[in-house]
């Protein structure tokens, strides 16, 4: 696969070269990425399990989402920032990996699932907020767990490939 020149340029940038040549930067940024993804996945799973009606049943779904969402977004921001730095260090190599591309397909699907949930399913949340979740909510919870699981598997494969 031919790699677009922009990724070669990125890899050869000051940021890319500094990270590659340092012994401690890559593992340190990677560690930050692990913290971030743990909180992203964990906080999303806590909400998903509530949407499936499997856990946190004593707490209204809206209250749980309200409590978790700021952490999810903060951690997601950190994951994007740390992930971008890791990517920059070997951009041309990463972009050529099937697992790397698959990870972003699953991330797009997870994002789409979230948008549909917020725009459609959440509108009648008052009806099932404290009781048995609506079918749409259960489907959103299951799909979210599936997509985020796939993101982890792809991401780990990326780390294993280079």
């Amino acid at each position: 696969m031919t790699v677009p020149a922009i990724f070669e340029t990125l890899q050869a940038s000051v940021v890319g070269i500094t990270i590659t040549e340092s012994t401690w930067m890559f593992p340190t940024i990677e560690t930050i990425h692990v913290f971030a993804l743990a909180v992203v996945l964990g906080s999303i799973a806590i909400v998903d399990l509530r949407l499936l009606g499997w856990a946190s049943k004593g707490r209204p779904a809206s209250a749980l989402i309200h409590s978790m969402l700021p952490w999810t977004w903060a951690a997601f921001g950190l994951a994007v920032a740390s992930g971008s730095l890791l990517f920059t260090s070997r951009a041309a190599d990463y972009i050529a990996l099937p697992a790397f591309n698959a990870k972003f397909v699953f991330m797009a699907l997870a994002g789409l699932n979230m948008v549909v949930f917020h725009l459609v399913t959440q509108r009648n949340m008052a009806k099932w907020d404290t009781g048995k979740p609506a079918t749409g909510a259960r489907v959103a919870g299951a799909l979210s767990l599936l997509f985020w699981g796939a993101i982890i598997v792809c991401g780990r494969q990326v780390g294993f490939s280079l």
Binding site: F35, L37, L41, Q157
Partner: peptide
């Protein structure tokens, strides 16, 4: 990598 992926998912659950 598959076992590591399960390890990471469990870690995310435990840590959060």
């Amino acid at each position: 990598p598959v076992i590591q992926s399960v390890h990471i998912m469990a870690l995310a659950l435990v840590f959060t």
